[in-house]
């Protein structure tokens, strides 16, 4: 399995990553190698095998729909790069 330069750019964009032109050959090589390893999966016939999403096949536990968290906005926002009046600031989205 090999992937091309354009694939790398597309995948990077989907993941909101930017790979510099200089690094693209290296990433193309590395990802092709990894996908080559992953390709070994296709040799095994898995028709009819139930996919395993959880090691213990457990179901999601439900809880009552009540508020359990207390409001700690100020404390949490201490880690934010930019806040104002309790809001997270980002570059302007709407003109």
């Amino acid at each position: 399995m090999s992937i091309k330069k354009q694939d790398i750019k597309k995948i990077a964009h989907l993941a909101r990553l930017a790979i510099s032109e200089d690094d693209i050959p290296k990433y193309t090589q590395n990802l092709s190698d990894i996908l080559g390893l992953v390709e070994q999966m296709s040799a095994t016939d898995t028709r009819g095998v139930t996919p395993m999403a959880h090691p213990l096949d457990a179901q999601q536990r439900l809880r009552a729909d009540v508020v359990t968290e207390k409001n700690q906005r100020e404390q949490f926002q201490k880690n934010a790069p930019s806040v104002e009046s309790g809001l997270f600031l980002v570059p302007q989205v709407i003109e």
Partner: peptide, 29 residues
């Protein structure tokens, strides 16, 4: 970044069955 990109690729439209679903089936085996 490599791992995020591999995961993004495996989960992207058209590839899910061949990668993620297949891997979950092998996980069962």
């Amino acid at each position: 970044k490599r791992r995020i990109m591999i995961g993004t690729y495996a989960l992207s439209a058209g590839y899910y069955d061949a990668y993620y679903l297949k891997a979950q089936q092998l996980r069962r085996l």
